[in-house]
Write a protein that binds this DNA or RNA. Structure first.
Lengths: 344, 344
DNA sequence: TAATTTTACGCAAACGCTTGACTTATTATT
DNA sequence: AATAATAAGTCAAGCGTTTGCGTAAAATTA
């Protein structure tokens, strides 16, 4: 068993040429003659030579690694996104250093430190639910490590991001319900401060107004996404003066809890009350009463697009080290889309 | 904006001392005087010095990175496992390079190449469904990159692995059903060649025999996990001469399909027919008819344990570079466990 | 006070590779 | 035939750290 791996030095010695010649030969440099070039390449193959990437990383000041920090891989949204990220990264020769924040700000900060230490070339981040201070991101500027945020993006100027616009999908969802004859449509939304919550509300209002229906604020309730608060909201909606015949829920988990509550109240799902949700569970159609339709937010594509954007940024950085790149920011918005489930 | 990050050379120059002194001072080396030590450390802090890890990686021939190759993060089992991996890795100062094979052998090989190029210190692998040639793993021996397999392990000798023994949990599952009064118990198992399938079968047989019930091979059917084959198996079981009153299914997906089929046949779930499954969906209790109980396989713990094992291997490697380490292999088996669901 | 130990630090090599600058043959140009 | 241009290499610096070894100066011992 060989103890030490072959290096270009080794090859150079065996062929009695200089290491720079070997290096250039392996890179097909024009100033090396065909003869020696093939000699080198053959010996390299024979010795199963492989360049020591750590040396190259070091020498080039690049690691061809991109760090990914996201809240929770067990959320289907993110496990889908990471596939998009991986695929796009590998396509350009990058690899993915992973870290989950589990929605903890401390963990997030810690991960950034680690990524910084490992000298990732760039960072892809979906921020934790509880992040409202952004210094730890800004600190990376100093290291010239670009960040592209995706899905959950901080509310600060001058950042690159990729996100999915929920307004459009929400409008489609409401229109779908209107077309089905529903006139009183409720919404169980998320935490008030979340941008995602606001977008859903905006879509709701927009759709109502365009259809010349008045917007009844009493029909839109916020929740903190816990089972209790969702059940409470559901109950409140279903016992109000204006009882909705359809409810749009913040996501599939909310939908499931709301369904449960409605059933507890002896309502027939899809008859007395219909649900439309935002897709995050691929198997939601296996659940007892799947939503009639869901708004799809294309996690795979978001991840992919974010990665492509980051890599683009990285290329530019190496090409032109000027300041101009710092002045323009990518803001990429994908459109969400309503998907109507089978048998509806 | 600083263009170049501070190095120890920089510090050395400013303090007019040698770089080796700086290096040692920062490492609290005993042969550096307290006076200079603090001077160095203070300047380092002031300049926000951070060691260039790529240089260190290179110099030490270690990257403090472990590669993880697994089939599919969108499977709850693996997204759980990766959390265990991450936590254990971070605890020891390692980071995680991620790659999904999506159950493709080619992708798996490719990932191994990438990981090798990136000079990961060690590898954690759960093999793809279709892998039946193991050369690409063996090739890593040459690079002295240890592998610990987890959950899905290749059938070759002389490997380290962590897996979960399903036999015990299966025995518990059967016993649970027996205690509930069931006497005819069916099983919808997985593909025949899978070790996971064999273990389930073994558990089934063991439990039956221990209870002095005869093992009826007609009650155990294999499936290839597709919806069609599961439905067919379910139908066959429920129309056979000996109709089971309970069925153990290979996993939660199988359970859902089987339930659907049973309902199609006008059977009342939990009355005419009961189901017990192997846990892989955290939200399975949200489904229409969740299984009465599931066999838990502790993905988080498996990931954690596998990582700890790998790191242990890595420590040994640096400590004693002898051959002895190559002669003993870790084979760690966790026990599965039956979890009885609420309201049963 | 001389000899010896200890303390505190500097020198320089090494890790493997890339690359700008320089050198020496060889071939082409006038 | 002298000069210029090209081809094919070589040299050596440099990337940032770590570390074995050497060595003054200071402290201890005899």
């Amino acid at each position: 068993m060989k103890k030490t791996l072959p290096t270009i030095k080794e090859i150079a010695k065996q062929l009695n040429i200089s290491i720079s010649t070997v290096s250039r030969a392996l890179h097909d440099h024009p100033s090396i003659g065909l003869r020696t070039k093939t000699r080198v390449q053959e010996l390299a193959k024979q010795l199963q030579y492989e360049p020591n990437q750590t040396a190259i990383f070091f020498q080039q000041g690049k690691t061809f690694t991109i760090g990914v920090i996201l809240p929770e891989l067990s959320e289907a949204f993110f496990s889908s996104a990471i596939s998009g990220i991986e695929d796009a990264a590998h396509k350009s020769g990058y690899t993915v250093l992973l870290g989950q924040s589990h929605d903890s700000v401390d963990k997030e900060k810690q991960l950034i430190e680690t990524m910084k230490k490992h000298r990732v070339d760039g960072l892809l981040i979906s921020i934790s639910k509880n992040t409202n201070n952004y210094e730890h991101f800004e600190a990376l500027q100093r290291y010239n490590i670009p960040i592209v945020f995706f899905d959950r993006i901080p509310k600060i100027p001058n950042i690159h991001y990729v996100a999915c616009n929920m307004i459009n999908g929400t409008v489609q969802a409401i229109n779908f319900l209107l077309k089905k004859g529903h006139r009183i449509i409720g919404m169980i939304n998320g935490p008030e401060k979340l941008p995602a919550t606001k977008e859903r509300l905006d879509g709701y209002i927009q759709a109502m107004i365009k259809s010349r229906l008045k917007y009844d604020a009493g029909l839109v309730l916020n929740s903190d996404l816990t089972k209790e608060s969702v059940c409470a909201a559901t109950e409140k909606l279903l016992t109000g003066k204006r009882k909705p015949t359809a409810i749009v829920t913040f996501n599939d988990y909310v939908a499931m809890d709301a369904v449960q509550q409605a059933r507890k109240m002896k309502l027939k799902i899809n008859k007395d009350i219909c649900f439309v949700s935002y897709a995050n569970l691929p198997i939601s159609h296996y659940t007892a009463y799947p939503p009639m339709a869901s708004v799809e937010q294309f996690p795979y594509q978001q991840g992919q697009k974010a990665t492509e954007t980051l890599i683009d940024l990285l290329q530019r950085k190496t090409n032109a080290d000027n300041e101009a790149i710092n002045t323009t920011y990518y803001k990429i918005i994908l459109e969400s889309q309503l998907v109507i489930h089978e048998g509806v």
